[in-house]
Design a protein around this nucleic acid. Structure first.
Length: 423
RNA sequence: GGAGAGAUGGCAGAGUGGUCGAAUGCGGCGGUCUUGAAAACCGUUGUACCGAAAGGUACCGGGGGUUCGAAUCCCUCUCUCUCCGCCA
């Protein structure tokens, strides 16, 4: 959520910058300012009456003590009429505030200057690539390899739960565990503190990171307890700092967590859902940083470099793209996506998304900090990235490393898998 | 799941209807003293909103109610503790 301060002080500039998202946001922006004007006026009036009513209440106490019953009763009547007015205003204030919140939550984050114009993912800007696309004798998609070597049983998942809940078996399961351990160990080496968060979150947390109120259809819900299965560890991780006031010297805060992620993926049926390409439950190691506003873009670059190192270590051909305005997520100011080439399918698969949210999430989270020696609080910047999501990495590893003799495990993983070949 | 107790500022802890945004202690910050430090002493120390400012308003776990007036009374939810039951 943008702050009213941002919107009121840079109105024209914000509208211009938002237009990079391929949509005109001048209407909600002006609407927000209009509603805020109303809100201020009502608040002013209401405070004035409350002040009078408070004064009156105190005087009534005094009058009773002095035994001036008649005067006290007169004052009481006046107080009652004031109270009615306040009640009306309070209701109006509440309505106005809700309306404001609604309009504000329709306005996405302001794209950074680096965000290229564009409508869809085809307009994303490739900034770097690396690795070598393997020349395979035979292109085999991972779902066939998974079946051939009995690594993943999709049918069994259907039986136990439903589509999109695969069952990993034998070396397939071990490969999962190896990747998780590899990613966590790398994150630890890079200075991230490992967290093991709850996989279930409440409404406040969902609101804090922006899943609620509008994206609730993407989460699995436990309606009886008003809880949700996490779509990513970003949610519990970032919400650790909900309603927290940090000191400037606390920065940067670097957290990592492995978690299962649960996504309903409503509305994405039939598109790229084969095998591991799109699942309802998958595993991911997430990295989160909370940083001083002056340093968040430095940190974003650092996180991109970190994820790049991971895919390099896994010897996967990759490219990094800067998302264009049309493809940029609602809450993000700048996002880099990582894609790896999965040679069996002949496709680029998105395996990581690294974003700077600036103060957009922090505003909702009420995640603030104080500059040393200053009393005033400011919003912190939050960033996160996948480092990495497992299924598509597994898909690419299986497909790219497939030879007639079996599937070769990258060297960095062998320490964790305790085997170097799947055959 | 059942019975009971509780939730107050960074922490500890007082306050059971009127000048309480809240005593006191500890901690933090500033100062005096000191070559420096400690001790002692003095001062200061929550968040948000409205306002150009003066100042005002709201907040004592969340939400609602009673009252002229609520940290204090009532309802409800959440959480914590003790006991019982169940249990990895």
């Amino acid at each position: 959520m943008l702050t009213l301060y941002q919107i009121r002080n840079n109105t024209e500039e914000i509208i211009k910058k938002l237009s990079v998202r391929n949509k005109d946001f001048s209407e909600p922006v002006y609407e927000a300012i209009k509603i805020d004007d109303e809100r201020r006026e009502i608040k002013g009036k209401s405070d004035l009456i409350l002040a009078e009513s408070n004064k009156l209440a105190k005087s009534i106490g005094q009058l009773f003590k002095e035994g001036k019953q008649a005067e006290a009763n007169q004052a009481k009547e006046k107080a009652i009429s004031l109270k009615e007015e306040v009640k009306k205003l309070a209701r109006k204030l509440n309505e106005t505030e809700n309306k404001l919140l609604q309009v504000l939550s329709e306005i996405p984050n302001i794209p950074n200057e680096l965000v290229p114009e564009g409508k869809s993912d085809t307009d994303n800007e490739e900034i770097r690539n690396g690795g070598i696309i393997p020349k395979l004798n035979k292109k085999v998609p991972h779902w066939e390899l998974a079946d051939k070597y009995d690594l993943i049983d999709f049918e069994l998942g259907n039986k136990i739960t439903g589509a999109g809940f695969p069952v990993y078996k034998g070396k397939g399961a071990k490969l999962q565990r190896a990747l998780i351990n590899f990613f966590l160990e790398e994150a630890e080496k890079a200075g991230f503190t490992e967290i093991m968060p709850p996989l279930v979150i409440n409404e406040d947390s969902g609101f804090g990171t922006g899943q609620l109120p509008d994206k609730e259809g993407q989460m699995y819900q436990i309606t009886e307890d008003k809880l949700f299965l996490i779509p990513t560890a970003e949610v519990p991780l970032t919400n650790i700092y909900r309603n927290v006031i940090l000191k400037a010297e606390d920065f940067p805060i670097k957290l990592t967590a492995y978690s299962s992620c649960f996504r309903r993926e409503a509305g994405s049926y039939g598109k790229d859902v084969r095998g591991l390409n799109r699942l309802h439950q998958f595993d991911k190691v997430e990295i989160v940083q909370i940083q001083h506003p002056d340093k968040s873009y430095e940190t974003l670059d650092e996180m991109v470099a970190y994820v790049e190192l991971l895919v390099q270590k896994l010897e996967l051909p990759y490219r990094i793209v800067r998302l264009c305005g049309g493809d940029l997520g609602f809450t993000s100011a700048l996002t880099y996506d990582f894609e790896v080439y999965s040679a069996g399918q002949g496709k680029w698969l998105e395996v990581s998304s690294v974003s700077n949210f600036e103060s957009f999430q922090a505003n909702r989270l009420k995640l603030r900090f104080k500059e040393t020696g200053e009393k005033q609080t400011k919003l912190a910047h939050t960033l996160n990235g996948s480092a990495l999501a497992l299924p598509r990495i597994v898909a690419a590893l299986l497909e790219n490393n497939y030879t007639e003799n079996g599937i070769k495990i990258p060297e960095v993983l062998q320490k964790f898998t305790k085997f170097d070949f799947i055959n």
